[in-house]
Amino acid sequence: MNKLLIALSLTCGLAQASWADGGMDILKSQCSSCHNLTGPAPQTLKEIWARKGPDLFYAGNRYRKEWLIQWLQNPTQIRPAGEFYEDHIKPGPKRDVVDPSTLKPHVALSKADAEAVADTLMTLKPKSDLIAKEKIDDGTVSLSMGEMAFDKFLGCMACHRIEPDYGGLSGPELYTAGKRLQPEYMASYIRSPQAWDPKIWMPNKHVSDGNIQKLVHYLEALSKEKENGK
């Protein structure tokens, strides 16, 4: 009986290992031309201009696994102006506009591949020290108070959308952030975008601890709104 259990656990262990390795195989063959899987983040403007998709080398510190599995099967545009945003805009009659002809759709994976890739991505956690510094309290914030902080006091709407057709375009949409991102990652990134991505075009606004909590609660509440469901 014991031998059977050992054999079973060995088999399961091997299956688990090959599953994870399969995820890395897919990442290396299908994803690495646009995504950085090994780090470090871009250290110069030329490097960040060349980036075609988000860095994935700290994906396990960043994403929610259940969201990754769903999104990889049915990808949608998260950054309205793509990456690098300036390569995807053009002058318009009233203001610069996104040039959709320059944006390419993201490859879609099968359920099995999405699960394997998500499984591997969640093991990539080189920045756990930054995550460990954040603690999200149990509080909540009303959508109206959260929006007040986001829009009026902190000005985040300048670059981010908080509903499908409201807000700026050069940053990722944030009405889905609570579904996509781990709360401690959101807090850490708001505290210092440069600690994650030194050349990113999101500034450090020196947001207070209290407002960081408020923003994370707001983004989580926002992603639960029906019209923002994706």
Binding site: E86, P91, R95, G167, L169, S170
Partner: peptide, 26 residues
Amino acid sequence: KDNYRTYCVQCHGMAGNGKGVNIRDM
């Protein structure tokens, strides 16, 4: 010039005229 292209153009515009891609709802 490179910093302007990266950080300022998103709001101040490709031509520097204040007509950046983000401004509609400001």
